[in-house]
Structures are given as structure tokens and as C-alpha cells.
Simulated assay, not measured.
Amino acid sequence: MTADFIVSAMLMDQVEYSFVHETSDGQDAAQQHWRQDMIPNTKTMGLNRRDWLLGAAASVCGASARAQAPGWPTRPVQLIVAAPAGGPSDALARMLAEDMARSLGQPMVIDNRPGAGGVLGVEALMRSAPDGHTVLMSGIANTTAPALLPKVGHDFVRDFVHVTQLVAGSNVLVAHPSTGFKTLADVLTAAKAKPGKLTYASSGNGSSGHLAIELLKQRAGVSLLHIPYRGGAPALNDLLGGQVDLLVINQDAVIPYAKAGRLVPLAITSPARIKLFPDLPTMAESGVPGFEATAWAGLTVPRGTPTQAVERLHTAAKSALGGAVGAKQEDIGAVVVGSSPAQFGEFVRKETEKWAQVIKTAGIKPD
């Protein structure tokens, strides 16, 4: 209900003013008139009648203005997605944007900026004003890029405010059936017996699958031969054809091939088991303590973004995750997170440090 306080007449002894309000059904209610007998006895209050009226008018007008202040956001919010339209990141972004727009009272417009391992999206964010109207859907690539590409020109930990981690998704280490592997322990035993003989595919140097197995190698003390491909599809095709032995693949992509007996799931990369594969152990359970390599998505804004905007974005995202958006993500096996800015900032710091160490130790260079 909106209100406008109108001083309709101000006379020495005859003052009339009206309060016009809009009802919930959008129709203007009849003006209500308060006359002189409605005004307090200003003499007993030590006030001049005119001063009292002006003060009352200013008070009500001020309250009305505060209630109707536009605040943030004042225009559509741009959501940068550092991935092509049609992919899983884009799908999540579009569901999220639709839901968050209802909470924010402004549209959220998707801006796809694929390329350079997520760097193009970050650069677009850096060029934006730190006013909360430009947001990045961040992910694991943003925490690996600084180590892979030392000249990126930003520090992903310090140069941004990390609003919330939205979801986390597991990958699965799979083997071709011809290897005879049934567990991660089988792989580690074979790798130690014949160092550098087992092969693993990835979608490219520095990809999440590549880094996950490099982390495994370093934690387990084994040697595996990396075969990089230009994309996930050719890597998967060669694994299915038996040209390579191992691959780390997205959890939901494994299901049809596992059911058909064309791939053997060995372990998941998340710290806890997932409902898509409740009987599949984690890497940590399989003999590599502390192992964690998850795909994730979050919301990030430039440093200097007003606290009000960060809080509103966090609240809107949490609301979406608590509804249909979160339910949909859980249906495909993702874990809904919804962390606070402080928690997400700490997560980003740890991820960045972990992957920087893995990349340095392995000597990984981008394609």
C-alpha cells in the first residue's frame, strides 16, 4: 500500500489535510479528512499549531519516502557465465536468474563469455562498476587460472567478493572394462607395479579431470601417463574404445555407460558419497586420505561492491536454492551449498592454494 501525505489547506484556525492511500486491489480509497478536532492540543504540548502540522507532514512524508526508496538493484543485473549457452553451467545460471529476479525485483540478464579457461568472464567482471549490478557465476576454473596463466592480471582471492557457493558436483574415476580394475586400490597397485604404463585421458591440460588425477598421483605417490584431448567428447570416445585406461568424468555422464557395462566406476572425487552412486566409495575411503576435487559453481562480484548488494544477492540465491532450483540440482546429483560470503571466500582461498600447488608440482602448462 503506497501513501501520499497531502497538506490541502493551511489556515490560521481551519486546517484540513488528507491521507490518500491505495488499497490492495489497486483502487484508490476515498480520501479521509482530518479536521481541526483531530489535531492534538498543541497548547498543552508547548507547540505552535502551524509548526506541529509542518512537523507532522515532514515526518509522514519522510517515512513514505524511506519506504519507497528504490535501494538496490536499480536496474537489471547482469550475470556473466564463462561458458557457452546450452551447457550445464548455462542451464544452472538461467534457472537461478529467473528465480533470483523475482526476489530482487529486477531482471537478471545472462551474458555468456566463454573462452580462455574462464578468464574472459573474469575480465568482464573486472571492467564492471563495483555496484552489484554485474555478477559472475564462478567455478573451479577461476581458482586454477592464476597458476596456469600467471599473466591473467588478477588475484581471484583478493580482487573479488565471493557471495555464495551455490552447488558442488562430484566427478567419478572410471576405467575401461578391459583393464580388469574394480576399485581404486586395483589402479594404485597396478600403477606402482608398472610406473607410467597406465594411461588416463582428459579434456585438455589444466582441465578439472586432469587436475583431479594429478592430485591423485601426488597424494598416492604413483605415476600415470596423461593423454590430453581437445574436449571431453573425444576423451570419452577413446576411453569407450579402449585406447586409454582411465578418465575422470562428470557424475551424471557415467550412468548410462556404467549400466551398459561399458565403463567401470571406481571412486568419486567428492569428500562424501553421493546419492547417484550410494555404494561407490570416495577417493578418501579408497586409500587417499583428504582427497577432494569437486566441480562447483558460485556467485562472485568485484571488490568494493556495497554490503547491501552482497547481502541481497546472497539472500536471493539462498531462496532459490531452497526452492525449485535446489531441488532440480539435487535431482541430477549435485549438492546444494548456499554458503555465507565468509565461508565461500575461505573455500575459494583454499581451492586456489591447493590447485596452485598441484599445478606447480606437476609442471602443468595450458594447451
Rank of each mutant, 00 (worst) to 15 (best):
W296P: 01
A185V: 14
D238E: 09
G322I: 00
E351C: 08
R113Y: 07
S138D: 11
G345N: 05
A193N: 09
A82T: 07
V254Q: 03
T143C: 11
L184F: 07
S59I: 08
Y229L: 03
A362Q: 05
K318N: 10
L225I: 04
L263Y: 09
G115Q: 00
P76H: 07
V348T: 03
L276E: 13
I140A: 12
A56N: 11
E346M: 08
V288C: 06
P40E: 01
E292S: 15
G115F: 02
H176A: 11
E98W: 10
A327P: 01
S103D: 12
G298D: 03
L47I: 02
V335N: 00
P366T: 03
Y229F: 13
S178Q: 14
V222R: 01
A356I: 07
M100R: 02
T42H: 00
D367A: 12
S223I: 10
V20R: 13
G221Q: 02
L280K: 09
T361I: 10
G71F: 10
D90W: 14
K192L: 10
D367R: 09
T300H: 02
L266H: 10
Q14I: 12
L53N: 01
E346C: 04
R312N: 05
T352W: 04
D28Q: 13
P114E: 03
L125Q: 00
R35K: 13
L54A: 09
F19H: 12
D186S: 04
R50Y: 08
T143H: 04
V109G: 01
R349Q: 14
L47K: 01
G204Q: 02
G117R: 04
N112P: 03
E123S: 06
N171S: 14
N171R: 15
Y257E: 09
N237P: 04
A193V: 08
H314T: 09
T282R: 08
E214C: 09
T144I: 13
D99V: 00
T183F: 09
H314L: 10
P84Y: 07
L11M: 13
L149A: 14
R219W: 09
H314P: 01
V20Q: 14
I213G: 01
Q343E: 15
V119T: 03
Q106Y: 06
R66C: 11
S59L: 13
P114C: 04
A69M: 11
E346P: 06
H210M: 04
I6A: 09
K192Q: 14
N142K: 11
P234L: 01
T352N: 05
D155C: 11
H154M: 15
M137D: 02
K197M: 13
M283H: 13
F291I: 05
Q308C: 07
G62T: 12
P195Q: 04
T144S: 15
R349I: 08
A362G: 06
M95P: 03
E292L: 09
P341G: 05
P88N: 15
V7T: 10
